[in-house]
Design a protein around this nucleic acid. Structure first.
Lengths: 225, 225
DNA sequence: TATCATGGAAAAATCGATTTTTTACTATGG
DNA sequence: CCATAGTAAAAAATCGATTTTTCCATGATA
């Protein structure tokens, strides 16, 4: 009752969600080979739904799959992160421009709401996963009006990839504060309809966030040597 | 899938390849619900590898999946095709510009080779699937030097989506001839290093190819009414 | 007539066991 | 000492059967 979408649960989709969360959240080491039996026990799930979820994640790019030799968590690489950052800047800049051109009053309201929830999550800082959720929703809300489902799909995918790096990286409270303030300013510029300025700020936001994420590569390199 | 390192065959990857080919090749009706048992028999494959392949294809966007109610071939829509075309133009234009800036002698040689193979396939026209393969390889070769693995991945994905429309659409020999000549000219411009002109031509090529693909939507709309 | 309940067939999802393939280890010959 | 063939253990992939859920025809009720 009351739920907008009846998300009929299934073992596969649940384990998919859980694994995705844990992969992005950094609960697996980069480059690690997944022991399927161990996963089966840890998540209390049967083999079939587990394997189906792993296949989905591999197709999505959060896992690598080699025929007959199972699944592996992708390594972190500086080059790949640079690629992801550059594409995020272009794609999200594009999407924001279009979103501003198409946004209506309802969207403005949702954006303010998402911005408010995020600010609250910044302040309370009690539950990390809750902040991550609010942050993701905010960035989604900002662009969802752009009118291009495929562009949004790619942006989401890149965002997930990016977050894997960011969440492996050490926290940087100084930069974090700037990033938080940028969120608020993004709302202001978006509502004012300053397309160009909003776009520039979003790209700066991604670049700065990339500075933090870069820390993940250094950790990874140390670990390899 | 983009990077398949292992050459070892597996039932899952084989059925994945076969299903992908048949989905893009239009051997399923748009909107059709897949009867898993029928697929099992038709492809002479067990249930587990089949389901794993279906999960991969759903994550890739060539199938839709609803919890507890199986898999469905996505409908064709004019809006989606417009989205795909617009993104292909932007992404591939971007990639071509970068490819030209980075291309070396070896790439030039490969491009000439791919162009030659495609021309031969145009002329002989004996085996449709063979031409499709040469065509795909040509477009891949044109952009592969761009240096952005993620951009290439998205381009490939959009190309597959696009081809599903194109191959459902009725053939248009007149336009086909123009498209073929554009391939040759793309090679010329690329080798000459005329970045801007090559980029414009590629975008025109995609737009014109889109005109053909549009025919699929009309067929689909007739079928629905 | 429209709505809602019901049961059984069909389909999807899941499980447990089996088969196949890889990996790690050991012994053997060059 | 290195290379390599053999083999046992482990892991991955696949199969066949079972369980769960949906779908749809039927009939009862207001």
């Amino acid at each position: 009752m009351g739920s907008q979408e009846s998300l009929a649960a299934s073992a596969t989709s649940e384990i998919y969600t859980a694994l995705k969360r844990d992969l992005i959240g950094g609960r697996f080491r980069a480059g690690e080979k997944l022991a399927i039996n161990a996963l089966k026990q840890h998540y209390r799930i049967g083999l079939s739904p587990l394997r189906e979820a792993l296949n989905r994640l591999a197709a999505y790019g959060l896992l690598e799959q080699e025929n007959q030799r199972g699944f592996r968590v992708p390594a972190l690489s500086r080059d790949e992160l640079d690629d992801i950052i550059a594409l995020r800047q272009r794609f999200e800049g594009e999407a924001l421009t279009q979103a501003l051109a198409r946004g209506d009053a309802d969207w403005e309201a949702r954006l303010i709401g998402a911005g408010h929830r995020l600010k609250r999550a910044d302040e309370t800082a009690t539950d990390l996963e809750q902040w991550e959720q609010a942050h993701l929703q905010f960035h989604r809300c900002l662009l969802e009006q752009c009118g291009s489902p495929w562009l949004l799909r790619f942006i989401e995918q890149l965002h997930d990839q990016f977050d894997r790096y960011r969440r492996m990286a050490p926290a940087n409270p100084a930069i974090r504060e700037t990033l938080d303030s940028q969120h608020a300013e993004l709302v202001t510029l978006a509502l004012a309809g300053h397309s160009r300025a909003a776009c520039d700020l979003l790209q700066a936001h991604i670049r700065l966030s990339g500075e933090v994420a870069l820390g993940a590569c250094q950790i990874d390199e140390r670990g390899q040597s």
